[in-house]
């Protein structure tokens, strides 16, 4: 159980962070690009980015928490 729990923790954190990193990068880059092109659309883009980033970040947070649970039970 010990080594497998560590591997499970590493996979949960690593893959979660990889996906969220790519997703967050895309969201932020497109929003900044949109705000730079059209500053008058800032509030709309801000709201969409807020909801998008909030959703994308839920997964790695759960990954980190699961990894910690695996780690504490190893």
């Amino acid at each position: 159980m010990g080594a497998l729990a560590f591997i499970a923790a590493a996979i949960a954190v690593g893959l979660g962070a990889l996906g969220a990193g790519i997703g967050n990068g895309l969201i932020v880059s497109k929003t900044v690009e949109g705000v730079a092109r059209q500053p008058e659309a800032k509030s709309t883009l801000q709201t969409l980015m807020f909801i998008g980033v909030g959703l994308v970040e839920a997964l790695p947070i759960i990954g980190v928490v699961l990894a910690f649970i695996f780690y504490s039970q190893a």
Binding site: V35, Q46, M49, V53, P60, I61, V64
Partner: peptide, 28 residues
């Protein structure tokens, strides 16, 4: 998010912070 979009709209540089690490640390 408000700081990032304000910085983008005003052409300023983004202020540095711990970002996701802070949120993950609070959850842990």
């Amino acid at each position: 998010v408000r700081l990032i979009t304000d910085a983008a709209a005003n052409g300023e540089k983004k202020k540095r912070g711990l970002g996701f690490s802070q949120r993950a640390a609070v959850s842990v």
